[in-house]
Design a protein around this nucleic acid. Sequence first.
DNA 1: CACTTATAGAACGTAACCGTTTCGCAGCGA
DNA 2: TCGCTGCGAAACGGTTACGTTCTATAAGTG
Lengths: 189, 189
Amino acid sequence: MRSERGVDPRIERSRQVILRAALDELGEAGYGAFTIESLAARAGVAKSTIYRHWPDKISLIADAFETAHEHAVPSVDGLTARESLQRLLGHVIEVVADSVFSSCIPALIEGAERDPRLREFRHRYSALRRQSLTALIARGVADGEFRAAVDPALAAQALLGSIFYGRLMTSESFDSHRLGDLIDMVLGP
Amino acid sequence: MRSERGVDPRIERSRQVILRAALDELGEAGYGAFTIESLAARAGVAKSTIYRHWPDKISLIADAFETAHEHAVPSVDGLTARESLQRLLGHVIEVVADSVFSSCIPALIEGAERDPRLREFRHRYSALRRQSLTALIARGVADGEFRAAVDPALAAQALLGSIFYGRLMTSESFDSHRLGDLIDMVLGP
DNA sequence: CACTTATAGAACGTAACCGTTTCGCAGCGA
DNA sequence: TCGCTGCGAAACGGTTACGTTCTATAAGTG
């Protein structure tokens, strides 16, 4: 038995290479056409290596999403609620418009429809972001920055919904130049 | 050669049975796991019959969406813009929350990512609805029913986005009791 | 009724992917 | 250096779906 410290680095190295390739593959092939064999080819790895680390396709995909979940969220220290919103949503727009993760969103939605683990991840993923937005909006309402009648949770959903709707149902992503207008419209002055 | 009028009714009957079953299958299995063989089994039809009507899976799916596209949109004659919005969006909420079509939305999104024909359909489908909403909102703005600063297109996207975001990224669909609040928040008085 | 033809059902070869196993190698820790 | 073990590569049988072809049936037409 190996000691805790002296873990063979090949294990983690393989894991990272495979998980990264998994997101690429998922974005290109989609949830249904994602296969272990094509992943192995893309990652430059033997099929048996993948099966040594994960029991099945679902575990691997769920793992890949979890691992990629560490986002660089922009700092909002010392900003007004409106400025913070502008910055956070601007970041969402960027990520949703173009990133490895972005191209996986359709696959995530499709996968979440079939598998409870992906559904759980998707829910956690969206809930976290929505909650922080909601808290921020609530602060803005309390400070008189936004209209008093605004329901923070509903507003957060409208803002995020605008961005995701563009990505998922139309062919263009949200135009970041209109973010200010969107915030004004939903939250008022 | 047959006359134009005396077309064999078996053809159209088969088409309808298959297209209907295709939506069911698409909703249950998803875009990737959709197969001709499982569709044939579900429709109670021979595989060869399907291949006689469509050259491949994509054509069939695109056809199924087109055929199912005839919606019963509620009448909005003689209503104010706000009342019309309430009714139209209420209908969207119903459809998105629960219908054969609803369960196909994830598959449509996934499929649109892979195939230009489905992308085209999705775009047309969403654009139509968005445009009629936009026109309605513009009317409300012109009539002073909504805030003057409202951008109709942006508002339409925010309203629809709220509804679709709930369906696609969270586990709950939009609560129709909050529709009034949503409209008030986005469009003011 | 006699004809045409769409369909059901079965069989076919092909291809992809499954998940497992075996083996030789090379990177690793001690 | 030695022993361990993760890895690449290849092969395996099994399964599923592909798209095509054939035949008998039965529904439609005139």
